[in-house]
Simulated assay, not measured.
Amino acid sequence: MRRDQPPRPVAVGDVVAVYSDALGAWTASQVTGIDVAEKCAAVLELDWSGPEPATVADLGDVQPLRLTHHSWGGKLSHCNRSWVLPRSFTVIGSLPSLVTAPSYSYASVWGRGEQLALQRHWDSGDREDWNAPYALTCTADELAAEHTRGIVRAGVKHLTVRGITRLDCARLVSAFPDLTRLSLSGNLGTLTSAAALNQLARLQALTVSELFGMDASDCLLPRHVPEVEEVSLYGIPADYAAAMRKAWRSHVRHGVELDVRGARKPEWLAANAANPLRDWDGREHIPRTAYRKAVAQYEATRDAFLVEVTGGEDHGNIVEIGRAFGTAFNALDSRSPFIETVEREELFDALDFLADEAQTAAGRELTAARAALIEGANSSRDW
């Protein structure tokens, strides 16, 4: 597999077709550029849907998809995506590029007609949000309530479950037997019976984030789920991550996007259970040294805050603790800037986390102390 070419052959000008659940028909797009350095392909979606096309001639006089719904303002549906052409996409021929200007938008997943469906919904005059009938997004608690009632949702093909503390994958598979796309996320939550996901014979995409409890024996196996074309794992057990890489690496050339990051050993899990900045560990733009110093500063702030609230809650001192927190992260960020919007929100979440911990330890409400801590951080921060 050559490093200077997409793993699955595709070239500028190629027109690719895929079945779209959103449209209930086939749709098409064109590759308008390939960036070897970034390993991405510029993809222009076409304003077309219909029966499965055999060649570009079956598309007729195709035009680029121009988006006017919501706040798009007439922009082309033109986006840089991973250069791995998903296995469900078929190259049906080639045409001169319908656009020559580069795209400055980026997304990892190739579109499957969702934007065209949204545009047609908008063009019909209906300004209400379009909700795909085959897709469901819910919390783990909402899913548990359905499991209790024994509800089977055979019509759901795309399922996103957030806020998982504990989830039995065997029960999930029984309740949603027709899934093609599954996304599961938590905050050091636990998945049990993860091997049961191999029973989802039509599965095309699996995303798992910040969930544990799986091991190598729970690996998703290509022979059981031959249509999988996207495996995205972050913050998962190290042995599970290694097994998944080994099982799927050779399938990249057949159109599988494989992204496995944040493999964690049991020791890491034990050490970071009470570390709200643990997601920074291994984040691409955060230097390793900055991460270690950030955790040390968080721990110092937590300890100082706890001493104050258990010793009388002097709000003046707490404001100073918050100010020191803001100043410390100013210094860290000035050396090699890494605090962006997400990190800024996570730092304030960390302050809330330590205040919650202190409130539990003190056995009383700490509303004023929490506010003083945040006031101090806001008064000194540059991030």
Results as ranks from 00 to 15, higher is better:
residue 341 T to M: 05
residue 49 S to F: 14
residue 310 T to G: 05
residue 166 R to Y: 15
residue 118 L to I: 11
residue 25 A to K: 08
residue 38 E to N: 07
residue 282 G to N: 12
residue 133 P to A: 00
residue 312 G to K: 12
residue 283 R to W: 13
residue 296 A to Q: 14
residue 219 C to I: 05
residue 211 L to G: 03
residue 28 A to N: 04
residue 219 C to V: 14
residue 29 S to C: 11
residue 57 A to C: 07
residue 117 A to G: 05
residue 119 Q to I: 07
residue 307 V to F: 12
residue 329 F to D: 00
residue 137 T to I: 10
residue 298 Y to S: 06
residue 350 A to S: 03
residue 304 A to T: 04
residue 88 S to H: 06
residue 262 G to Q: 00
residue 30 Q to L: 09
residue 324 A to V: 04
residue 304 A to R: 13
residue 178 D to Q: 12
residue 26 W to F: 04
residue 353 F to E: 00
residue 7 P to A: 13
residue 321 I to L: 13
residue 69 H to P: 02
residue 166 R to V: 10
residue 90 T to G: 07
residue 129 D to K: 14
residue 244 M to L: 14
residue 259 D to G: 04
residue 210 E to M: 08
residue 301 T to P: 05
residue 3 R to M: 04
residue 141 D to Y: 15
residue 183 S to Q: 14
residue 211 L to S: 10
residue 278 R to G: 04
residue 132 A to Y: 00
residue 239 D to A: 01
residue 381 R to D: 00
residue 36 V to T: 15
residue 238 A to E: 09
residue 108 S to Y: 09
residue 11 A to M: 15
residue 324 A to T: 04
residue 375 E to R: 00
residue 84 V to Y: 06
residue 126 D to N: 01
residue 301 T to C: 05
residue 281 D to M: 12
residue 80 N to W: 08
residue 160 T to P: 01
residue 33 G to T: 11
residue 123 D to S: 14
residue 220 L to G: 09
residue 240 Y to E: 00
residue 211 L to T: 13
residue 114 E to A: 15
residue 29 S to E: 14
residue 375 E to A: 12
residue 275 N to Y: 05
residue 299 E to V: 13
residue 193 S to Y: 09
residue 177 P to W: 00
residue 143 L to V: 05
residue 150 G to L: 09
residue 131 N to Q: 15
residue 251 H to E: 14
residue 41 A to V: 03
residue 345 E to Y: 10
residue 379 S to K: 05
residue 112 R to K: 05
residue 278 R to I: 08
residue 162 R to G: 03
residue 321 I to E: 01
residue 378 N to Q: 01
residue 312 G to A: 06
residue 280 W to S: 01
residue 159 L to W: 02
residue 144 A to V: 06
residue 30 Q to V: 13
residue 136 L to M: 04
residue 378 N to Y: 02
residue 16 V to N: 02
residue 117 A to K: 13
residue 283 R to F: 08
residue 156 V to C: 01
residue 195 A to T: 12
residue 255 G to W: 15
residue 316 G to Y: 12
residue 102 P to D: 03
residue 252 V to Y: 02
residue 317 N to R: 15
residue 375 E to T: 02
